[in-house]
């Protein structure tokens, strides 16, 4: 069941992005930025946590989950550290993704030659 929900949810997010891309002048850069903000907004009152529980991996792969992880780490740290925890825990959960993206893109851009 989680597989089917994952398919539907991730497909729905991509469909939304495609509809915005086709029917407005926004570029993919605008849309990904917008979706990160939406993901952070949905986790303000734990809606995205509920979606992840119902959907599984399909909710963790779209860029909305990046915004969710940012705010989730910040709030988890603010539990123990108070107000400053919002700043301390911001990258707690997304550190893996950002670090991996930086390292892989740097190493691969050094190794491989650009095509054109």
């Amino acid at each position: 069941m989680l597989y089917f929900n994952s398919f539907l949810f991730c497909g729905f997010i991509c469909l939304m992005g495609q509809l915005i891309l086709d029917n407005s002048k926004l570029t993919p850069g605008h849309i990904t930025s917008l979706f990160v903000v939406i993901g952070a907004f949905l986790d303000t009152f734990s809606i995205y946590d509920f979606i992840i529980k119902k959907v599984g991996g399909g909710a963790l792969i779209p860029i909305t989950s990046f915004g969710h992880s940012l705010i989730h780490g910040a709030l988890a740290k603010s539990n123990s550290m108070g107000f400053m925890g919002l700043l301390m825990g911001m990258f707690d959960l997304t550190a893996t993704g950002i670090t991996a993206a930086i390292i892989f893109s740097f190493v691969f851009s050094l190794i491989f030659k650009p095509k054109n």
Binding site: Y3, S6, C10, F12, I13, C14, Q18, D22, G57, G58
Partner: peptide
């Protein structure tokens, strides 16, 4: 375009769960 995005995104989502 919408259907292609829906199906390919959905397959990626199911793959993530797997």
């Amino acid at each position: 375009n919408g259907i292609v995005a829906f199906v390919s995104g959905g397959i990626l989502g199911a793959l993530a769960e797997g």
